[in-house]
Computed example of a mutant assay.
Amino acid sequence: MKIVRTPFLILLLMASISCQPKNKSDKQEVAQTEESDTQMAGKMSEEQLQKYETAYFASGCFWCVEAIFESVKGVKEVYSGYSGGAEKNPTYEEVSYGRTNHAEAVEVFYDPDVISFTQLVQVFFGSHDPTTLNRQGPDRGAQYRSIAFYKNDKEKKIILDYMDKLRSENVYGDRAIVTEVTPFEKFYKAEAYHQDYEKRNPNNSYIRNVSIPRLNRFKENFKSYLKEDAH
Rank of each mutant, 00 (worst) to 15 (best):
V123Y: 11
V123F: 09
G126L: 14
G126W: 10
G126E: 14
S127F: 06
S127Q: 10
H128L: 12
H128W: 09
D129F: 08
P130N: 12
P130E: 06
T131G: 04
T132V: 10
L133T: 14
N134G: 09
R135N: 08
R135S: 08
D139P: 04
R140F: 09
R140M: 11
R140L: 11
G141I: 04
A142T: 14
Q143I: 09
Q143K: 10
Q143N: 10
R145W: 03
R145N: 06
R145H: 02
R145F: 03
R145A: 02
S146R: 06
I147F: 08
A148L: 04
A148N: 01
F149I: 05
F149D: 01
F149Q: 05
Y150R: 02
D153S: 12
D153R: 09
D153E: 12
K154P: 05
K154S: 13
K154T: 12
E155T: 00
K156W: 08
K157I: 10
I158K: 03
I158W: 03
I158E: 03
L160T: 02
L160D: 00
L160K: 02
D161N: 08
Y162K: 01
D164Q: 09
K165G: 00
K165Y: 09
K165P: 04
L166V: 02
R167A: 07
R167V: 04
R167S: 06
S168Y: 01
S168F: 00
S168N: 15
E169S: 00
E169R: 00
N170K: 15
N170W: 09
N170V: 06
V171F: 12
V171P: 01
Y172D: 07
D174G: 05
D174S: 14
D174H: 06
D174Q: 08
A176F: 08
I177S: 08
V178K: 07
T179F: 02
T179V: 07
T179R: 00
T179M: 02
E180K: 13
E180D: 11
E180F: 08
T182A: 08
T182Q: 15
T182W: 14
T182S: 12
P183Y: 11
